[in-house]
């Protein structure tokens, strides 16, 4: 019994120290993997772009056109974009065009480190 609880304690401490608890993007999204980009910091606003073009803002399914009504684009801020690796350049463009002429916003595309 004692050696068992020792091992369980060690495992617990390993997962507590080495693991990170962070909000993951939706299961359906496969993030593209990269090796050269800079490491990311967590953002409060998160957009998730699915392979079929669906969009989620902080876990809530929204239309691309209604993005402007959900975010105050006049103020400055940064947003984390979790886009599926299969998203096409056109779909990405449609999303970015919603942020047109708002240089005070920074859109950070998140990828998975290889």
């Amino acid at each position: 019994m004692i050696p068992l609880i020792n091992i369980v304690f060690l495992l617990l401490i390993f997962f507590m120290v080495a693991g990170q608890i962070k909000a993951q993007p939706d299961q359906a999204i496969t993030l593209p993997s990269t090796a050269q980009l800079e490491s990311a910091q967590a953002q409060t606003l998160r957009l998730e772009l699915f392979a079929d073009g669906q969009l989620m803002l902080n876990g809530e399914l929204i239309e691309v056109a209604s993005l402007k009504s959900k975010i105050d684009l006049e103020s400055a801020g940064s947003i984390a974009l979790f886009a599926d690796a299969r998203v096409t350049a056109k779909q990405l463009d449609e999303l970015l065009s919603e942020f047109a002429n708002t240089p005070q916003w920074s859109i950070e595309l998140y990828t998975l480190e290889k």
Partner: peptide
């Protein structure tokens, strides 16, 4: 209790690291 805590940390923690790339906003 320790088992339950272990299960929680095993299931919720992730070891994957994210990288980011700042996209340029279209301007006209």
């Amino acid at each position: 209790v320790v088992f339950i805590l272990l299960m929680f940390f095993m299931l919720t923690s992730s070891f994957s690291q994210w990288q980011m790339l700042e996209l340029s906003v279209p301007t006209s």
